[in-house]
């Protein structure tokens, strides 16, 4: 799946607010990617992570490694874990965006960010194999698409559906507290495959909140023979 065919429909309208696009033609956006995807009002509101951020998890506002990452280090489960890179902060605008994208099911909205994701991939993780975090079969049936897979596809490099996730865990993570999230066991499994063994793996997910999901996935992938693991997420909450 590539996102150009995903975009073959939704052209001419802002992917976030559905307003007709009236991008002001400045030299700046003639030569950048954003023209034609988001309207000017939405572009201004994007909560891009810029300035100081935790080098290990992209948490904004930290100059050095943040306390979250330090406590992950203490748990000594880090193994061959490298780092997480996120593009956006989680604010009201991003929350509304996520609601429409993920819960209402407007999958094409992610196409607004594929250039950003590709740039981050090239800068931080060249040569890594993207592996999207899977949904449980029940959630997949309800939602009909996997948002992490949509993001992985937008990187335009071959990605591996190397992880599997069984049914029967507790409810949505977005409704859980931090403690609950850290205690939940998602039960990922990774069947041995050439795509994983000895390769650098980049786990793709939509949002990094406590890091529990990507780190559990990382452990499973390392056990399956991954040389190293890292993650690229759209949002750092």
């Amino acid at each position: 799946m590539n996102n150009d065919s995903l975009l073959s429909f939704a052209r001419g309208y802002c992917l976030s607010c559905q307003e007709r696009l009236q991008t002001s033609w400045t030299y700046n956006n003639l030569f950048t990617w954003r023209a034609g995807r988001l309207c000017d009002t939405c572009t201004v509101q994007l909560p891009v992570i810029s300035g100081p951020a935790c080098p290990e998890c992209s948490a904004p506002g930290h100059v050095d490694v943040c306390s979250d990452c330090l406590s992950w280090r203490q748990r000594a489960e880090t193994g061959r874990w490298m780092k997480n890179v996120s593009l956006f902060r989680y604010d009201d605008w991003m929350q509304a965006w996520t609601t429409r994208w993920k819960f209402r099911g407007d999958a094409v909205m992610a196409a607004a960010f594929d250039h950003d994701l590709r740039r981050a991939y090239r800068k931080h993780f060249p040569g890594f194999v993207p592996v999207p975090v899977p949904l449980t079969p029940a959630r997949m049936k309800e939602r009909r698409f996997n948002q992490a897979e949509v993001l992985a596809a937008s990187l335009k490099v071959p990605y591996a559906l190397a992880l599997e996730r069984p049914d029967g865990e507790s409810g949505k993570q977005s409704k859980q507290t931090k403690r609950e999230r850290l205690q939940t066991v998602r039960g990922f499994t990774a069947p041995a495959s050439d795509m994983i063994f000895g390769r650098n793996i980049l786990i793709i997910d939509d949002i990094y909140t406590t890091g529990a999901t990507v780190r559990e996935a990382a452990q499973v992938l390392e056990a399956a023979g991954a040389a190293s693991t890292a993650s690229l997420t759209l949002i750092r909450a």
Binding site: M1, F9, A10, A107, V108, R144, F145
Partner: peptide
Amino acid sequence: PGLFGSHTCACGSGRC
């Protein structure tokens, strides 16, 4: 056409 979208669907018939 600007107000439709599509994605690989879990229904198994490819892009919906």
